[in-house]
Every structure is written in structure tokens, then in C-alpha cells.
Design a protein around this nucleic acid. Structure first.
Lengths: 213, 213
DNA sequence: GGCTAAATGGAGAGTGCCATCCGTTTACCC
DNA sequence: GGGTAAACGGATGGCACTCTCCATTTAGCC
């Protein structure tokens, strides 16, 4: 974590405005997606555009900050999953939670993808997360519950696929995500021992809405 | 098919320009994605913007026309799959071909999604395709090779998921698609009889590139 | 209460794209 | 070869968004 001295020196009104901007951004993202104009967020927050830009010099910075909490949740889920006594359950829980977050929080995926590669500042945390992921996978394989030819990169594959499936609105997206993840996890499971389990209910996806998004 | 009298009456130079525009559009889409400015396509085709707009009044019209061939291929694949003596093989082949098309032809997915809902003109073909899809699924279920709780909407789910997974460049996208589809098809297979088959090789996905796309 | 640096917000310059208008050019028919 | 309608393309107005400048306000300290 870098020295954030300026954060504490922030004047009271400035700090309050900063919070209002973040709140407004989260609301706006949820409503209109990540591409909402900066001016809209500023108006919603009841501040001028300049104030927004002074606090968050780039759009990416604002996005990152806005979803920091959700990202932290994902990271936490990762380490918790790693400590689950049942490696397979831990593995599933991580994937499920990350995917659900993607489905629930609109724009989160972009934040997720934008966050890490950005600054060297995060490089350390990133490698740590990657190692944890590798361990999660290794553990599940070692226990014989995850198929041997599973690759760590397949997790990225799941995340991206889930991102595509959740290009839609609210509850529908969550349902689509649940079903997709259920299908995939079943494939990841090793051995023919596990027959097809029950699935979450199917989803009627409205292509028109997705196209118009 | 509607009366397209104007098509044949098109003057020679106009017809040639029309083709050049379509070629330029396909190239531009492949290179820069679907959001490339109309002016860029016009320049590439060596025509004025006005000419482009005269031929293709809306962006959607241009996109649709540009990918008409690929779309026809998909439709053909559907009807061929339906006539495969092995229902399961037919089912798989349809999904595989559509997904491969998505992975190979950048922008195709948007064209695919944009095409049908648009005009009433296509409504008929659309319903016909949907019925064919339903039959494809029904047949595969009846043969006992497709799990009973599979839903027709799951095909849309696959298409969308695949769309997400292929948000990348060229060969990488195709590899990701193959692997995802292999995983999914395995889940769709009924009964514990079929153990995990071999998978296409894993893919290292470059998140930076995807984010910057 | 008054001073000062921090913070503010609106106006506006700059950019990129869409879509149309209209004077000029060109293919086609006779 | 000449007439005519079709086709052309650059210029242009309009719009939406980004990002900065600067005159004004305000919090915090004495």
C-alpha cells in the first residue's frame, strides 16, 4: 500500500464530496453501465465536473475506486476458499462468488480487468492472488476432485464466458450466470463418478435488450 | 425475400462501389472491431461518406450485409445438423460451428444478434430457425444423449458465453472458444456414462489486450 | 472575525463522430 | 455525341463527450 498522505490532509468538504462522487458513480454504473459520461456522474453527485476530475484524474481511477469494495470481497473469497477443508468446495465457492459478483454488479468486470494490469502498485497483490489461485487449483487437483487437465487459465476463461453470459439486466443476468457456472463446474469435476447434478432453472434471455444495451 | 427491384437497376459503378464498401467494411471490422467509424470504412473503400450512407442507411444495415455470408453459413449448419443421423453429433456440430464463427469473425456476434430482431422481414426466417433449433434439441434429448433438463435457451447462453470468451484476438480467441465449447458440451451430455473426454489445449488469455480492446 | 490556501463549479475550447445537403461528375440509352 | 437521371463526394451543421482554466467561494486556523 503506497503512502496516501494526501488522503488524510483532504479538507472536510472535499472528503465528503469524494464520497458523494463515489456513491453517484456506483449508482450510475449500475443504471447505465460503465460508459456513462463523467458529467452525468458529477451532476448526480451534485458537484461540478472539475471537482470530479480533480479527485479522479482518469475514468479508470474512478471505476477502480468505485468497485474497490467488491474487488476486496472477491480477493477475500479467494483466500477463504483456499482455507476450506474441502478443496473442491473451496474451488467452487471462489468461482461462484466471483461470477455472481460479475452478474450482480454491472460494470464490475471491467473494473476487475482494469484494476490489476494498470499500476505497478498493484503488481505485488496481483502476483499474490495469482499464486493463491494456482494453489487453489493445485489443491483441488491433488484431492482428485478436479480433473487433471484443468488449467489455471481456464479460470480466466470462466470469468470471460460469464461476463458474456451476464450481458443483460439484473436478475436475469444472475440466473444466467448461475446456470452457466453450474454447467461448467460439472465439467471441471473429475471422474465419471459425479453424474449430472441438479441445475438452477433455465433463463429466457432477451437478445433485443442485450443488443440495445 | 422482398422485391428488390432497385438492386438490379443499380448502375454499374454504383454496384461496384457497393461491393467495395462491403469489402472495406469486413476488413475494417476484422481489424478494429464493429465500432469503427463510418468515415473510416468509406475512406478505405475509396468512396465518399455520402455514398456509403446512400447504400446503407444505418450502421446496422451495413453490419448485417457484411456478415450475411457468415450468417447463411450458420443457418446452413443448423439445417445440416438437423439432418445428421446421429442427433447428438448434429447438436454438437451446430454449436461448434456457430461458436467457431463467433471466434473467427470479429464482430460477427453483434451482426448475429442485430440481424434477427430488426425487421419484420426476417421474422419468418427467424421463427423457422427457432423451430429448427427446438427440433435439434428435442431430437437429441429423445435419443437419450442430451440431458433432459437442457433448455433451448441454454443455446443462447452458450452463444453469449462464447462471445465473452472470444473477446480477444485471432487464434487465441478460437482456442478459447474450442476449449469452452468442449467443456460445455461435456456437461450437456446425458448420463454418467460419458466420462470426461479429451480437451483442446488450454489458452493463456491476455487480459491487458482484452481490456484495451 | 479575518486571513489564506484549499476547494469549487461553470464556461468553453477541443475532438470525433454522425448524417445530410448540394454542386459536380458519370454511366447509360438513343 | 448528346441528353438525362443516377451517382458521387466533400463540405458542413449538429451533437456528445472530455478535460482545463479561472474567477469565486469556503473551511480551518489564528
Amino acid at each position: 500500500m503506497p503512502a496516501q498522505t494526501s488522503q488524510n490532509v483532504l479538507r472536510a468538504d472535499a472528503r465528503q464530496n469524494r464520497e458523494r462522487i463515489l456513491t453517484a458513480a456506483r449508482e450510475a454504473y449500475a443504471l447505465h453501465g460503465i460508459d456513462v459520461p463523467m458529467a452525468t456522474i458529477a451532476r448526480r453527485a451534485g458537484v461540478g465536473v472539475a471537482t470530479l476530475y480533480r479527485r479522479f484524474p482518469t475514468r479508470a481511477a474512478l471505476v477502480s475506486e468505485s468497485f474497490a469494495e467488491q474487488l476486496a470481497h472477491c480477493v477475500a473469497a479467494l483466500y477463504e476458499g483456499l482455507e476450506d477443508p474441502d478443496p473442491w468446495r473451496g474451488f467452487c465457492s471462489v468461482i461462484e462468488q466471483v461470477c455472481l459478483m460479475q452478474a450482480t454488479e454491472r460494470g464490475f468486470t471491467q473494473a476487475f480487468l482494469a484494476q490489476f494490469p494498470e499500476h505497478t502498485e498493484y503488481a505485488e497483490e496481483r502476483t499474490r492472488a495469482e499464486q493463491a489461485l494456482a494453489r487453489l487449483v493445485g489443491r483441488a487437483k491433488a484431492s482428485g476432485q478436479l480433473r487433471q487437465d484443468f488449467d489455471v487459465n481456464d479460470i480466466i476463461l470462466v470469468v470471460l464466458a460469464n461476463c458474456g453470459a451476464t450481458t443483460g439486466a439484473g436478475e436475469e443476468a444472475a440466473a444466467a450466470s448461475r446456470r452457466l457456472v453450474a454447467y461448467l463446474l460439472q465439467s471441471f469435476r473429475a471422474g465419471p463418478a459425479a453424474g449430472p447434478g441438479p441445475l438452477p432453472s433455465p433463463v429466457q434471455l432477451d437478445l433485443d435488450r442485450i443488443h440495445g444495451r
